[in-house]
Design a protein around this nucleic acid. Sequence first.
DNA 1: CGGAATCCGCGCGGATACTG
DNA 2: CAGTATCCGCGCGGATTCCG
Lengths: 113, 113
Amino acid sequence: MEDVKLLTCNEKIRAIHDTMDVLSGKWKVSIIACLCYKGMRYSELKREVNGISGKMLSRELKDLEINKLIERTVEHTKPVCVYYKITPYGASLKELTEVIATWGLKHREMITQ
Amino acid sequence: MEDVKLLTCNEKIRAIHDTMDVLSGKWKVSIIACLCYKGMRYSELKREVNGISGKMLSRELKDLEINKLIERTVEHTKPVCVYYKITPYGASLKELTEVIATWGLKHREMITQ
DNA sequence: CGGAATCCGCGCGGATACTG
DNA sequence: CAGTATCCGCGCGGATTCCG
């Protein structure tokens, strides 16, 4: 966490690009944050991540699963029930989601004052 | 910083959306991070933020200026010289850029191992 | 219920050329 | 030097419909 301050500007930019490649799009951070709270089903996730369409949710979830940030489990009931949960690796993004959320709160105060 | 842990899931998602609205696109975080190091001219910024096109740099800088995160100063020399620097408000994003960069480093280790 | 398939518009984003 | 203007393709992202 502290070693980042030893980076040159260029190294830091590269590191930021690496993160942004994984978290690109406007929904992934929200999905990660949700699943950091608790595992959820598809429909529950769609409700929590306010405003996302079904197609985008499927797409983003697939991306996140490929990158090993979340895990997908299918329960073969009728009708089927699909469960998503964060992986230990994905959970390493929790601090990031909190910093982003904290800044969002301050920003809202700022623009509404 | 700590109060974010008191948020409900929904409040946190809203806060994240608020941040993402300002930092959307794949370049803004990098630009902010750069200008947190030091003020820079347009051409210098274009070199540091690796891979960005001139059009996108102009566009992103305009967005960031509108949101009061950066400041633009024109020196009327010939040829003109335009200087960008972070505002105090924009500097409040520094922790965010560091957390993102730190995770990017860990992620690179992860995927290259 | 949890998607996949399809259609479609809009805007991102690159390349190039041009301007003060 | 620091942009703006133009062209253009691609993919985001919503809406709707269909499927197992």
